[in-house]
Amino acid sequence: MSFDHDSVVAFAKSFGLFYLLALSACVLVYVYWPSNRPRFDKAAKTILEGEDRPWR
């Protein structure tokens, strides 16, 4: 593959779109993966726990 301007531009114009789609898919899978739900719920609540000390 040659790196002239046209090919670089063509790559730039197409690659980003696929990358965006792939990334969105990964994020959505991660976010809606059923077994992750309890961890998210837990995480959202942890910061509200009153104990103001490190764990060890």
């Binding site: 991660y30 976010v31 995480a43 910061i47 509200l48």
Partner: peptide, 27 residues
Amino acid sequence: YYFLPVRAGRPIYSYRMSIISFWGITF
């Protein structure tokens, strides 16, 4: 995302949405 829930005494409305917007913004 830290001080607002703590001050309001309530967990963030949607933790999942916060993750989605994180990647949206980063990308």
